[in-house]
Amino acid sequence: MSGADPGRPAIVLRGVSRDFETPGGATYCAVRDVSLAVAPGAFVSIVGPTGCGKSTLLNLVAGLLAPTAGQVEIGGVPLAGLNRRATYMFQQDALLPWKSVLDNVGLGLVFAGRPRDEARQAARAWLDRIGLAPFADRFPAQLSGGMRKRVAMAQNWAMDRDILLMDEPFSALDVHTRQAMETELLTLWTGSSKTVVFVTHDLEEAIALADEVIVISAGPASRVVARHVVPLARPRDLVDIRTMAAFNDLYGTIWASLRGEVLKSREAGQAGGVDA
């Protein structure tokens, strides 16, 4: 399934909007008229202030939400229903608490109709790879937050799909665990030719990981404000990258476009804005 067609973009959004109905019956527009394309094999970060519709955008690409207007195309094919070429790593814990670590990692394979033994074997190989083999028989509640994230990552990677959608996956972790997870993610991704869309509110994380940073405006009716190519060489050393001059220059440039949006969102927040 990793046969990414280099000719056409992996993900295309054409004039995509999404409205929600508020409990009061009014219409709330989360994203308005977003158009963008993501090249196959690219690592793209989406940043924006809180409540700017980043998750909505990701849910639209995942097919968990249908656009109110416009179209999402995956590999040149209009998306209808769930995106079967993507996996999704959620901000919250999404492991099944009643399944062991091993069965959680092999879950997608079982859903795909692979025999249980085969799924377990594949899951075991993934646990070896992420260093959690000794915890195969534990339940998620018995693991630390960082370990749970690693299991979730293995669960997603075991599916071997073309596209990885990630919604602030590491935001709940402490700084050190977070950096370890980011490094792990880059190691897995390097040479995999998989397309990654990584949503975060942390600009440093966005730059450190991605080939390109997409800035989204404050909600409601969020749109793409700016796109910045990250010219940092790979492989990247995430421990030192934040002290590099090129990193800080880029940080300054992107922050200039993001700053206004963050301030706007803060004002809206004080006025009782909706966090979508």
Binding site: Q92, G108, F111, A112
Partner: peptide, 13 residues
Amino acid sequence: DRVLVDNARMLGA
């Protein structure tokens, strides 16, 4: 939890 369902669906359930 909605997230458990969404995650399982994304995994092909």
